[in-house]
């Protein structure tokens, strides 16, 4: 396995290395002015420096707070509505058309409305994150729940489980692979959206740091928050995948 994986890994690192090399070459041969494109080492040094800077960490923390608050709301509402739509005809005929209308609407367009209603502080950002992460979670839950083998539910009902309880202990449980996939997508979306919201209108958070740096033409400082949020997204994604594998120990779907 390692024998086969090693050259593949090398092949995969190649394009990333090429991009970094090109970046380095552009700056060291003076083909790009540092005001437009700072050398990669300068960006890296600044990143390491900032990660030890309490003010920068405070901004990061603010971003994370908004991210997780919005994501948690999206999970709660999305899973609940998805399950309801899958289990009741009435709920389905109400939820389905609304989702059909709202899912393809760019949620970011609602941001001004959120600002107007909820103010410029945390709440509007959290609402936007929740609105954006909601639909993939809701749809994944619904699709997962309706494709649960009905005989699995029947087996539980025959053993004396009530329908209401079976919805949580059997349907949701059996749909977990799909639900968690939806949540993982929602998590990465949350990460991206919180940053964009902070860029558009905020006085703190990582996104604000980027905009602030661009206004004062501190090019290096523009890259640092962008890389930080990307790394956050990457590690949250990886962490969630690890959690998913643990939760899905018995499922055939989990690799």
């Amino acid at each position: 396995m390692t024998q086969r994986a090693a050259p593949e890994l090398l092949l995969g690192i190649l394009p990333i290395a090429l991009i970094l090399a090109l970046w380095q070459a552009l700056t060291s041969f003076d083909m790009a002015p540092p005001a437009l494109l700072p050398p990669p080492m300068a960006v890296f040094r600044r990143l390491v420096e900032q990660l030890g800077n309490p003010i920068f960490l405070q901004h990061t923390f603010t971003t994370l707070l908004r991210l997780f608050a919005g994501f948690a709301i999206a999970c709660l509402v999305g899973v609940t509505l998805g399950l309801m739509a899958s289990s009741s005809r009435v709920a389905e005929s109400a939820i389905r058309p609304i989702v059909r209308v709202l899912a393809p609407v760019p949620k970011i367009a609602l941001y001004p409305a959120f600002i107007l209603i909820l103010g410029f502080d945390h709440a509007s950002k959290i609402a936007l994150v929740a609105a954006d992460a909601l639909f993939p979670i809701l749809l994944a839950t619904y699709q997962g729940a309706v494709s649960v083998e009905p005989k699995l539910v029947w087996s539980a009902l025959a053993a004396g489980t009530t329908r209401r309880k079976a919805l949580l202990t059997v349907v949701l449980r059996a749909a977990l692979p799909s639900v968690l996939t939806g949540c993982r997508i929602g998590l990465v979306i949350s990460c991206i959206v919180v940053f964009l919201a902070e860029m558009i209108s905020s006085t703190d958070g990582l996104g604000h740091l980027l905009v602030y740096a661009s206004r004062s033409f501190e090019t290096v400082d523009m890259y640092v928050p962008l890389i930080t949020i990307s790394l956050l997204g990457l590690s949250l994604n990886a962490g969630f995948n690890a959690l998913r594998r643990r939760l899905l120990a018995g499922y055939p779907e989990a690799e």
């Binding site: 890994l9 690192i13 394009p15 949020i229 990307s230 997204g233 990457l234 949250l236």
Partner: peptide
């Protein structure tokens, strides 16, 4: 391409 795409995926 896969690792590159994986790295780009969470970039806003």
């Amino acid at each position: 391409f896969n690792p590159l795409l994986m790295v780009i995926y969470p970039v806003p």
